[in-house]
Amino acid sequence: MREQELFAVPKHTYWLAILSLFMGVSSLITSEFIPISLLTPIAHDLSISEGVAGQSITMVGVFAVITSLSLSPVVKHINRKIILLSFSVMVIISNLIVAFSLNYTVLLIGRALLGICVGGFWSMASAVTLQLATPKDISRALSIVYAGVSIATIIALPLSSYMGNIIGWRNVFIIAALMGLVSLIWQLFTLPSIPAQKGNSFSSMFNLLQQQWIFIGILAIISSYGGYHIVFSYLRPWLQNDLQLASNIVTLTLLLFGIANCVGTLIAGLFLGQFFKITMVMVHLLFFVIAITLFFSKHLITENLIMIFVWGLLFGFIPVGWTTWITRTLSNKAELMGGLSVAAIQLSIGLAAAIGGNLYDYFGSGGLFIASAVVMLFAILLIHHSFSIYLKMMNKPI
């Protein structure tokens, strides 16, 4: 089936609508990663360990996986604008549940609701953007949407940490709910009608996974995000407990980490556009080298901080890189591939938080770095294998 039969190419680019998606991404990812900067106070308030508190990130991943795999086939005839607005409402409710939670169980319920939003929104993000932007503006539009991830990194890490120290972690989640409200209003007035793509069924999704290069690519996505998040999920405890940084220095470090991530997102397109395969391989190789170096340089604070900033910069290449992979190879199946990739990403984030929590509780930060290095090495092998198979099949580079 040809691409134009699956979705209509817009006559002009809906920039205000694309900016509303940027706001939605910022709100969504901020809500997802706020606990990373607030693990210590959340754990203290609810009388649980930081490793257990980290499972609130795992809960989001579990429900995001389920939603991303099932949403497109289940709601294949519903206008995407209605679905996106529904997710914005659920983000607000989720953050309010967490903010007023009296125990760990209620907190997990709120995070599970957020997981549904994360999985649903991201499974549609690429396909919706393709219907809002003309072909010549697609790359720019995707960059704007994914810039929300970088902005959310700044909000969720340093600002949440700083504000949590002043107003308490519960009020930070209330502010996140207000961000969701702004996103809801913006999308309500700017998003046009967005018909669903045709061919969204469980059988079509299964058929995609039967192709070897796609299946290996999905495994590569799991390894790519997982290797990063094993360290990222426990960044604050490492800075605070292992490097013994003061709370104000921790906040500054998280701010610089977020800025580095923004820079990485902005420059990623320059490299990926011209040297896609080699850039993806080299980025993961650098992750591997940094993880090993961090393991052997535990007491070198300045060197550790420099490396963790580079770690943040490199991650800017990951979401842009894997989205580019989808739009270059499977644009006519963008929504289904979006669901599969989101399932892979959220599965990896959930596993990273779960495995990383146990590793940190039992082996300290050293266990995180070794695990990350091993996973990144595996990602390199999978990326090379998937891209090579595609090249042989299609007789053209990615």
Rank of each mutant, 00 (worst) to 15 (best):
V9S: 09
A352K: 12
L347I: 04
P397C: 00
W186Y: 13
I306E: 10
V231M: 09
N241H: 12
S126T: 15
Y360C: 01
M90P: 03
L84N: 11
A371D: 08
F202D: 02
M307W: 13
L300W: 12
L209I: 13
Q55E: 14
F121I: 07
Q244F: 10
H44G: 02
I214A: 11
A260S: 15
F296R: 11
T302E: 14
I57W: 07
P397Y: 04
G199Q: 12
V289R: 06
N395K: 15
K333L: 12
M163I: 08
V9N: 00
S372C: 01
Q55P: 00
W238T: 13
I66W: 11
Y390G: 01
L377S: 13
S72R: 06
L84K: 06
W169G: 00
G119C: 07
Q4S: 14
F275I: 03
G217V: 11
F232K: 01
G273A: 11
A344P: 06
L266G: 07
V106E: 08
G273Q: 13
L188Y: 15
S37A: 15
F87C: 09
L16S: 13
G316E: 09
P73R: 10
S49C: 00
G338I: 07
W15M: 03
I214E: 06
S297H: 13
I93D: 08
T323G: 03
I318S: 09
S86H: 03
I194M: 07
L391Q: 15
A17P: 05
G227Q: 03
L157K: 07
M394D: 05
L157R: 05
G199K: 12
L107R: 05
A196E: 10
G119A: 04
Q240W: 00
L377K: 05
I214K: 12
P10S: 00
G199E: 01
T129K: 05
P10W: 00
I36G: 06
G269S: 14
L391P: 00
A125Q: 06
E32Q: 12
V263Q: 06
Y104L: 10
W169Q: 03
F22L: 10
V52P: 03
S68P: 09
L181W: 04
R236H: 08
I138M: 09
N95M: 05
G312E: 02
L377D: 05
S183H: 08
I155T: 11
M179L: 15
I154F: 10
I97G: 11
I278E: 07
R80V: 12
G350D: 06
H229N: 15
V263N: 04
I92M: 13
L113N: 08
I144F: 04
N241W: 02
Y162A: 00
N103E: 02
A43T: 00
K198Q: 14
